Computed example of a mutant assay.
Amino acid sequence: MAEARKSITVQNGVTGEDAKACWIFGYGSICWKPDFDVKKVVFGSIRGYSRKFWQGNKAHRGTKDQLSRVATLVSDDKSVVHGVAFIVSDEQVIQNLKEREITLGGYTTIFTTFYPSNGPSFDILVYVAQQDNDMWLGDAPMPKMVDQIMRSKGPSGHNVEYVLRLAHFSKMHFPNIKDDHLYGLEDALMQKIQEMKLPLDSLMGDGKDCVTYVLSDEELDFNRHELDQERTNSFQYTTDVPDKKLRCLNI
Rank of each mutant, 00 (worst) to 15 (best):
residue 29 S to Y: 07
residue 55 Q to P: 07
residue 135 M to C: 13
residue 173 H to M: 01
residue 31 C to Y: 01
residue 35 D to C: 04
residue 110 I to R: 11
residue 91 E to R: 03
residue 27 Y to S: 06
residue 210 C to L: 14
residue 86 F to D: 04
residue 81 V to F: 05
residue 23 W to N: 05
residue 121 S to N: 14
residue 19 A to L: 12
residue 225 H to Q: 15
residue 191 Q to H: 11
residue 250 N to L: 06
residue 145 M to A: 12
residue 249 L to R: 06
residue 232 T to R: 14
residue 247 R to F: 03
residue 216 S to I: 09
residue 18 D to P: 01
residue 170 S to R: 03
residue 74 V to Q: 10
residue 7 S to W: 00
residue 51 R to G: 05
residue 85 A to C: 03
residue 147 D to E: 15
residue 142 M to V: 15
residue 129 A to R: 04
residue 86 F to H: 04
residue 107 Y to K: 06
residue 238 T to Q: 13
residue 119 G to C: 06
residue 228 D to Q: 15
residue 243 D to W: 02
residue 196 M to W: 03
residue 126 V to D: 11
residue 157 G to E: 11
residue 68 S to Q: 08
residue 234 S to K: 06
residue 231 R to A: 04
residue 179 D to L: 01
residue 14 V to A: 13
residue 168 H to G: 02
residue 109 T to R: 14
residue 193 I to T: 04
residue 21 A to E: 13
residue 188 A to M: 09
residue 244 K to G: 00
residue 138 G to R: 06
residue 74 V to W: 06
residue 141 P to K: 13
residue 54 W to Q: 02
residue 48 G to Y: 10
residue 181 H to F: 07
residue 193 I to Q: 00
residue 104 L to V: 03
residue 144 K to D: 15
residue 8 I to C: 00
residue 26 G to C: 05
residue 4 A to M: 01
residue 201 D to F: 00
residue 80 V to E: 14
residue 211 V to A: 07
residue 30 I to Q: 11
residue 217 D to G: 00
residue 166 L to Y: 04
residue 212 T to L: 07
residue 127 Y to T: 05
residue 85 A to N: 03
residue 140 A to S: 15
residue 211 V to D: 11
residue 215 L to F: 13
residue 202 S to H: 03
residue 87 I to S: 09
residue 110 I to G: 10
residue 141 P to R: 12
residue 221 D to R: 14
residue 148 Q to R: 11
residue 72 T to P: 10
residue 102 I to Y: 04
residue 144 K to P: 02
residue 236 Q to H: 08
residue 141 P to M: 11
residue 99 E to R: 13
residue 180 D to T: 09
residue 151 R to K: 15
residue 74 V to Y: 05
residue 118 N to P: 00
residue 43 F to H: 03
residue 118 N to R: 09
residue 45 S to A: 13
residue 126 V to Y: 12
residue 9 T to C: 00
residue 204 M to W: 06
residue 183 Y to T: 02
residue 215 L to Q: 07
residue 126 V to L: 08
residue 140 A to V: 04
residue 64 K to H: 11
residue 51 R to F: 07
residue 80 V to M: 09
residue 89 S to P: 00
residue 110 I to P: 12
residue 211 V to E: 12
residue 105 G to P: 08
residue 130 Q to R: 12
residue 128 V to H: 09
residue 164 L to C: 07
residue 161 E to A: 15
residue 189 L to H: 12
residue 53 F to N: 08
residue 92 Q to M: 10
residue 216 S to E: 07
residue 250 N to S: 08
residue 76 D to C: 12
residue 179 D to K: 01
residue 118 N to D: 13
residue 246 L to R: 05
residue 243 D to H: 05
residue 85 A to V: 02
